[in-house]
Design a protein around this nucleic acid. Structure first.
Length: 121
DNA sequence: ATTCTTACA
DNA sequence: TGTAAGCA
């Protein structure tokens, strides 16, 4: 049954953020939605609330980097790890460890080990 | 019908 | 950010 989990479409409507923005913020480590075995994003109340918070901060004029810090930059590492893990568990995961479905995030994980946060206006 | 990723306007 | 393309 529906476990109170929403697809990106409904979440977009609930947050006022475009699907494009939601996926982009995820790639930047601001959110880490769960995935179905088919890799479709599933958002629970926590994720929706987090996105609404991001929306709020953005409207207040904050930078994506500032938002990342405000929401806890430590999440980014955990989120990435969690995502990789979920992919491993979902089956057709990191067989070759590179030419997967989303190497963009792997690249982000790597580069994120080097860069640090900046500030707001 | 929806979502997903990649790539380009 | 938007949008198109080609899949699943």
């Amino acid at each position: 049954m529906a476990e109170g989990l929403l697809g990106i479409g409904p979440v977009s409507g609930l947050t006022g953020l475009s699907e494009r923005q939601i996926r982009y913020y995820e790639s930047q480590g601001l959110i880490a939605p769960r995935r179905t075995p088919g890799r479709q994003r599933l958002y629970g109340p926590v994720e929706v609330a987090r996105l609404q918070q991001i929306r709020k901060l953005l409207d207040e004029g904050h930078t994506l980097h500032a938002v990342r810090r405000a929401l806890g930059q430590q999440r980014s590492a955990l989120a990435a790890e969690s995502d990789v893990r979920s992919r491993l568990l979902s089956g057709q995961a990191l067989r070759s460890l590179y030419p997967v479905t989303n190497r963009a995030e792997l690249e982000r994980m790597i580069s994120q080990h080097d860069e640090e946060e900046d500030d707001v206006d």
